[in-house]
Simulated assay, not measured.
Amino acid sequence: MTGPVVAVVGPTAVGKSAVADALAERWGSAVISADAMQVYRGMDIGTAKMPVEERHAPLLLVDIIEPDEAYSAALFQRDARQQIDQLQAAGKIPVLCGGTGLYIMAALDDMRFPSGEIEGDARRRYERFAEEHGPDALYELLNRRDPESAQSIHPHNVRRVIRALEMLDEGVSYAEQRKGFSTPKPVYSAHIFALTMERSRLYGRIDARVDAMVRDGLVEEVERLLERGAGPALTARQAIGYKEIIDYLNGACSLDEAIELIKMRSRRYAKRQLSWFRRDDRITWLDMDSLDIEGAVDAIEREVRC
Rank of each mutant, 00 (worst) to 15 (best):
S189E: 15
F193K: 07
D85G: 03
R128D: 15
V304Q: 02
S200F: 05
L202T: 14
R228K: 10
A22T: 11
M1C: 08
Y188P: 07
R228S: 11
A48K: 01
Q38A: 13
M213C: 00
H156S: 04
I206N: 02
G116M: 02
E66M: 04
D169A: 08
G15W: 02
G241C: 09
A164Q: 04
A90K: 12
I45L: 01
D21T: 06
D110W: 03
A24F: 11
A233I: 01
S182G: 01
M50R: 13
C306I: 03
G204H: 06
R163V: 05
S33V: 09
Y242I: 13
Q86H: 12
N157K: 09
A252D: 14
H191S: 05
I45E: 09
A122W: 12
E54T: 06
S173N: 12
V187W: 07
G15S: 00
R81K: 02
D207T: 12
A233E: 12
R123H: 11
Q38K: 14
I283W: 11
I192N: 08
T196S: 15
E132I: 08
Q38L: 00
G116H: 11
G98F: 05
R124K: 15
S173P: 07
D211H: 07
A57F: 05
N143K: 15
M50F: 00
I84T: 07
R267V: 05
R268I: 03
V297E: 06
R209D: 13
D281T: 15
A258L: 02
H154I: 02
K243A: 13
I240W: 12
R272W: 10
K185C: 07
D256T: 02
Q77K: 03
E166C: 10
D287Y: 00
N250S: 13
E148Q: 01
V172Y: 09
I246F: 07
A74T: 02
S275D: 15
A80W: 04
P11R: 06
I206Y: 09
L59I: 08
L225C: 04
A107C: 04
L102M: 03
N157D: 14
D121T: 14
G217K: 12
P67D: 02
Q38P: 11
P4H: 06
L202D: 13
M105G: 06
E127K: 15
Y203M: 04
Y71P: 09
G134L: 04
A150S: 07
T2V: 09
P58S: 04
E25A: 11
D216E: 05
K243C: 04
A122I: 14
H156A: 08
R199E: 08
V214E: 06
R55N: 12
I153K: 02
V52H: 09
L218S: 00
L195D: 01
L261D: 14
I104A: 05
D287F: 06
R201A: 15
A175L: 04
I262T: 07
I64C: 14
T47G: 14
D287N: 13
A107K: 08
V39C: 10
E198W: 00
E53H: 03
A20K: 03
Y174E: 08
H156Y: 13
I153Y: 09
A150L: 01
R201G: 11
M197T: 15
I240S: 05
D109K: 01
Y269N: 09
R159L: 04
S17K: 00
T284F: 10
A48T: 05
S275W: 08
A239R: 00
